[in-house]
């Protein structure tokens, strides 16, 4: 019943949006960097500032009023399978809005729901343990975790149909001590 209700409501909203708005489309490619400054990346204690994790997305841009736009977007960050068969991918449901600051710059804000899946090939992995080696249990069945971030970023337009975007996603927004940031850096094509 709830599924039918959702379909009916969505059909109404979609019809309204597509019938009245002139939606611009956007495809993006770039990198996703999680836990900026809070994940150790070397033995010296340095933390992650930048890494190349492929991120692609498709989004739309709906005019709301004045210089304000609604920019829903679906993104994907994919990590290559390791030799230990561990897999990870993150789907991003961006519910962002934008404010047209000038002809070459927009401010983006909103929130994103992350759908993260981690899985492994099962079995065991033989790793060093003190002076000997031990068989540790490998990750197996896929597990999902969902979390939400607050977003703030900017987009600089190189020309009317090409832009570069930097979005910061804030995790644990209400916990000052354990607050952490991810960022997404992309090159965007407007169609």
């Amino acid at each position: 019943m709830s599924l039918l209700r959702n379909i009916l409501i969505q059909a109404f909203i979609l019809t309204s949006l597509l019938g009245t708005a002139n939606a611009a489309q956007m495809v993006s490619a770039g990198t996703f960097v999680p836990y900026v400054g809070k994940a150790q990346s070397s033995d010296s204690g340095a933390t992650t500032k930048f890494e190349l994790t492929p991120y692609v997305s498709y989004g739309l841009q709906f005019h709301m009023f004045g210089p304000h736009y609604f920019m829903p977007e679906l993104g994907l960050a994919y990590y290559h399978e390791s030799a230990k068969k561990t897999k990870k991918r993150i789907l991003f449901f961006h519910y962002d809005f934008s404010y047209i600051w000038s002809s070459s710059f927009i401010i983006r804000y909103g929130w994103t729901t992350y759908w993260q899946t981690i899985s492994g090939g099962g079995g065991s992995i033989n790793l060093r343990n003190g002076d000997s080696y031990t068989d540790y249990t490998a990750l197996s069945s896929p597990r999902d975790s969902y979390y939400t971030t607050l977003d703030l970023g900017g987009e600089f337009f190189i020309n009317p149909t090409r832009s570069v975007r930097l979005d910061f996603n804030m995790m644990n927004a209400r916990d000052l001590e354990n607050r952490a940031f991810n960022y997404i850096l992309t090159y965007n094509w407007y169609l």
Binding site: E51, Y79, H80, G120, I125, D135, T137, L139
Partner: peptide, 14 residues
């Protein structure tokens, strides 16, 4: 970009 990122492995308590 598409071939740069590789995930390594966490393991669980045996």
């Amino acid at each position: 970009i598409f071939f740069a990122s590789q995930l390594f492995a966490s393991t669980l308590n045996p």
